[in-house]
Amino acid sequence: MDSLVVLVLCLSCLLLLSLWRQSSGRGKLPPGPTPLPVIGNILQIGIKDISKSLTNLSKVYGPVFTLYFGLKPIVVLHGYEAVKEALIDLGEEFSGRGIFPLAERANRGFGIVFSNGKKWKEIRRFSLMTLRNFGMGKRSIEDRVQEEARCLVEELRKTKASPCDPTFILGCAPCNVICSIIFHKRFDYKDQQFLNLMEKLNENIKILSSPWIQICNNFSPIIDYFPGTHNKLLKNVAFMKSYILEKVKEHQESMDMNNPQDFIDCFLMKMEKEKHNQPSEFTIESLENTAVDLFGAGTETTSTTLRYALLLLLKHPEVTAKVQEEIERVIGRNRSPCMQDRSHMPYTDAVVHEVQRYIDLLPTSLPHAVTCDIKFRNYLIPKGTTILISLTSVLHDNKEFPNPEMFDPHHFLDEGGNFKKSKYFMPFSAGKRICVGEALAGMELFLFLTSILQNFNLKSLVDPKNLDTTPVVNGFASVPPFYQLCFIPV
């Protein structure tokens, strides 16, 4: 009986604490739906499609509103004006990374994606500088992407125009580009180590996009005490870190300090320079996690976009025909596509942009946080508050993009057929937390897609009208449904 009384008292205290925290903070924060004790607004949000729920709530509470995930307040920004004001106009104040408990377990605050403060700034600055020195957006990395595009075309030829699921092959190409940047090595598509790495990356994007992960991140005790797919994700990350550590040891034994070959060499050189400046942010643990982040951000996002792009091109054969006509006119058949071609191919450029806009790969991006107490639109948001960005509300804005739910390359073309930029184009987020590999991803999408369409016609196994382009999961990332196609050599 005594234990029951204690339990009831504990629960009562928890409920009172929950109510007090919510009521004391709500006077400062933007308005929002009334949260339930302990669980907050979790029942009012469709976990399978958070973005749709945010759109519905914005119609009631406006472009800036507050939700509670458990006891934790989260300020939501919906629509271009609110997102721009926060991420661009007040970029420094909104540059923090929001709480992501599962990532905390995986990387302990290291790396480039989930770190904060001085650690994040130094690692991000170093990573950007190193990638630029190796030619991100310049010639040397373009050579690597072109080489991988040629290998991709050869792998597709091996399908002999038979029906195939493109998931694996389209994942190999961007993964190999990242391998060449980090390890100075590309792998054969049949290499077992490479296959294991690909498998872990593919599993992780599916797990991260599941409703279960949303629950884990908002009720963090689940991570330590409950079984579930989150444990598989943590094991996959541990596998990748151990693999990278092996490569780091190989580099330490063979590195030429006067001739760095890749990202690992550059990081080890930085560690050597910083060894007298303790404590340094440049450690082996930081290198492991930064490399894992580059793999995660640079492989599955690009391969998922490529997979979605081919599905949309199957669905819209008239678009595919126009792209192939432009390829034939500008590039021809006797040389590989290059980035200089893009400025002469406005329709193809528009298609690449429209694919990214339409699929809305990361509907709410990753959570941000404010780095200080900030007054925002007459609300006071306390330091450390998590900020949720609705990228969907920007990419699918119906004023900027008429009929935003329709796939239409003319969203990025003017009346004369010239490519038209849009400030609403934010597939990689915006501001200080914009994806480090934005330029690389854009290069890969253009070169891989043009190389495929230069060499193959795409054949659907069903009537294009019957192809479903609805994402199968739409949590962290929008993942396309399973499909097969035939690559018919031109």
Rank of each mutant, 00 (worst) to 15 (best):
K28G: 12
E85A: 09
I99P: 15
F446Q: 01
C164D: 00
I389N: 04
C338P: 01
T304G: 04
F168N: 06
K185T: 08
T302M: 08
A86Q: 03
P337W: 01
K138L: 11
N398M: 11
K241C: 03
F376P: 00
P101I: 07
I434Q: 15
R157V: 05
I50P: 13
E147Y: 06
Q454V: 03
N258D: 14
Q484F: 02
R150C: 08
T469L: 12
W120G: 08
K421H: 10
I178C: 01
L77P: 01
V352R: 03
S478L: 07
K421S: 12
A441S: 08
T305S: 11
T320A: 10
Q193C: 10
S51Y: 13
I74V: 15
T55C: 12
I141V: 09
T229K: 15
D463F: 02
S51N: 15
I112V: 09
K421Y: 08
W120I: 04
T55S: 12
S393H: 03
E328Y: 15
P402D: 14
G27A: 13
E438D: 12
N259D: 11
I182T: 01
Y308F: 09
S303T: 06
L11N: 04
T302V: 10
P30A: 02
E93Q: 08
R97N: 05
E93H: 10
K375Q: 09
N455M: 06
E92D: 14
G437R: 01
A321R: 15
I205M: 11
L208T: 10
N41S: 07
D293R: 00
L36W: 14
P363T: 02
L233V: 15
H411S: 02
S24P: 13
R329Y: 11
E104D: 14
A477T: 12
E148A: 02
G437V: 03
K84E: 07
F446R: 01
C372T: 15
D373P: 08
P30G: 02
E253G: 12
A477L: 12
C338W: 06
L268A: 04
D360G: 09
N41L: 04
H184T: 13
P227E: 07
I374N: 03
I284S: 05
E93M: 05
V462C: 11
N176T: 01
I74S: 03
S127P: 01
V76P: 00
T320G: 10
T290G: 09
G79K: 04
N334R: 13
C175D: 00
M257F: 14
G40D: 02
N277Y: 08
S58N: 11
L447T: 06
S53C: 10
N217L: 08
I327Y: 01
R132A: 05
G137D: 11
L128N: 09
K421G: 11
E199R: 11
I374S: 06
V355S: 04
G79S: 09
Q146I: 14
N56F: 07
H411I: 01
E81R: 07
T304L: 08
P427V: 09
N378A: 03
V351A: 07
R342D: 00
S24D: 13
E203C: 04
H368D: 01
Y358R: 03
C338G: 09
D191K: 02
D341S: 04
F194R: 01
M129W: 12
H184V: 03
N107R: 04
P211H: 08
M136Q: 11
D256N: 10
K28A: 12
R97K: 04
V436D: 06
K118M: 12
I207M: 11
E93S: 10
S429P: 00
L152F: 02
E203W: 04
M255N: 11
T302R: 00
T348P: 00
R97L: 01
H276R: 10
S303R: 15
K206W: 04
H184G: 15
I488Y: 06
A161C: 14
H230Q: 11
K185L: 02
I331A: 05
P63Y: 03
Y379S: 05
K375C: 03
L467C: 03
P464Q: 04
C486T: 06
E318T: 11
P427S: 08
S3G: 14
K247L: 05
E285S: 07
M339C: 07
E272C: 08
E415R: 10
V355R: 00
L366T: 12
P363A: 05
K59D: 10
R26T: 13
R26M: 11
F100C: 15
L208H: 08
Y483E: 01
S12Y: 09
D408L: 04
L67K: 02
R124Q: 07
L440Y: 02
E253D: 12
P317G: 08
I123C: 15
C175V: 10
R186S: 02
P163C: 05
P367Y: 10
